[in-house]
């Protein structure tokens, strides 16, 4: 659909309460098995951030708040109400920012291995520098079971180009300050909907400790830690992930 003059790809599937699902740096996830399970109880609305999955980054986009305002418009345009807003990783950052602006159309917020805040000191590397890690080290941080990391040599040139494009888009949105907004912690008090964090126990990009510190910044927020999962519990442990979503937000 057209938003702010930009063609935004949106997957809609399932029936039930609207679930606005914001993907992370790896690209869209609405086609994964966990999403099919969620679609049994939710109407999933899953936009592709401009720049991901082979799409163009608009000339004037270069920050996470460009996405925040895009999705504020999306909520208005579709006139969505009672929305469960769920974001993964960088999408979690977008979701948290959006919720600090207005929760008028939201009922619940779910942040999955989300980035967006700085929790440590200036010399602490709170968030792994995903652009500065050797591929095998990055896989170790991303996955509980690194053998699940995609083998880029098995991808077609077209698939690999999409992976490279996703990586570029992630860089455009998150490069500096890296993966966070220094002002966000002082704005999180505005979030007045029930908020739940879901975290992979083996996440090495943003650790469980980071997740706990982030969780403490939002009043009343709770957290589920999923064992044997890394940065993407929805793909490594889809069953436990869906259970966590249902028990927090499924009616």
């Amino acid at each position: 659909m057209k938003l702010q003059g930009i063609d935004v790809g949106i997957v809609r599937k399932g029936k039930g309460r609207p679930l606005l699902m914001l993907h992370g740096g790896g690209g869209p996830v609405a086609g994964m098995p966990f999403a099919d399970r969620l679609a049994e109880r939710f109407e999933i609305i899953a936009p592709t951030h401009p720049g991901f999955a082979g799409t163009r980054i608009p000339e004037h986009f270069n920050r996470v708040d460009d996405l925040v305002f895009l999705y504020l418009d999306l909520l208005d345009e579709l006139d969505l109400k009672d929305v469960v807003l769920m974001g993964f990783s960088m999408g979690g950052w977008v979701a948290a920012e959006l919720a600090t602006m207005t929760t008028e159309r939201l009922s619940k917020l779910i942040l999955v291995d989300a980035v967006g805040v700085k929790v440590g000191g200036r010399e602490d590397r709170d968030i792994a520098d995903v652009f500065g890690l050797p591929p095998e080290q990055l896989a170790n941080k991303m996955f509980h079971d690194p053998s699940r990391a995609p083998d880029i040599n098995a991808l077609t040139p077209e698939q690999l180009e999409i992976v490279a494009g996703n990586r570029m888009a992630l860089g455009v949105y998150t490069w500096d300050p890296f993966m966070h907004n220094p002002k966000l912690p002082r704005r999180l008090h505005r979030i007045d909907v029930p908020t739940h964090f879901i975290w992979g126990a083996s996440d090495g990009v943003v650790t469980v400790d980071y997740g706990r510190a982030f969780c403490k910044m939002i009043s009343g927020a709770t957290m589920t830690v999923i064992e044997k999962a890394g940065h993407s519990p929805q793909s490594e442990q889809p069953g436990a992930f869906v259970d966590a979503v249902f028990s927090f937000a499924g009616r």
Partner: peptide, 10 residues
């Protein structure tokens, strides 16, 4: 990210 166009980066 962003130095090379995606096709070259790939």
């Amino acid at each position: 990210p962003g130095y090379h166009p995606p096709a070259v980066s790939a």
